[in-house]
Amino acid sequence: MEALMAVCIGVLTACGVYLMLRARTFPVVMGLMLLGYAVNLFLFAMGRLATEAPAVIGRAESHADPLPQALVLTAIVIGFAMTAYVVILVIRARKTLNHDYVDDRVNERAHGAPEKSQGTRS
């Protein structure tokens, strides 16, 4: 089980980092989400992996560590909020910058100077 878990975390992290290095907003958001999954699995594994060990006292011979489970829950909730925010930001950036590169200067090099910035009200 340890090997499977390690491979899962590794593959998720590798895919996440690869997507983030694409430097265009949609792949970067997907990459961040994959990295988030990998990190949550990793955090979960830090309570040690065990089968048939519930995190409730008195139900079984051995008990799992309940704390990492609580931490993962917290991390998932925070991850949701951050993903929601970043998706909105990326949509806004697509509209304001007229391209989907993470680095505004990429566009500048390809198409000359950016047009005059316009303050838009949210």
Binding site: M20, T25, V28, L32, Y85, V86, L89, V90, R92, A93, T96, L97, V102, D103, D104, P114, S117, Q118, G119, T120, R121, S122
Partner: peptide, 16 residues
């Protein structure tokens, strides 16, 4: 806050 090209571009780097 307030929007505009420079803010959105800088903010994206900061957030990511």
């Amino acid at each position: 806050f307030g929007g505009g090209r420079a803010r959105v571009a800088a903010s994206m780097h900061y957030v990511f």
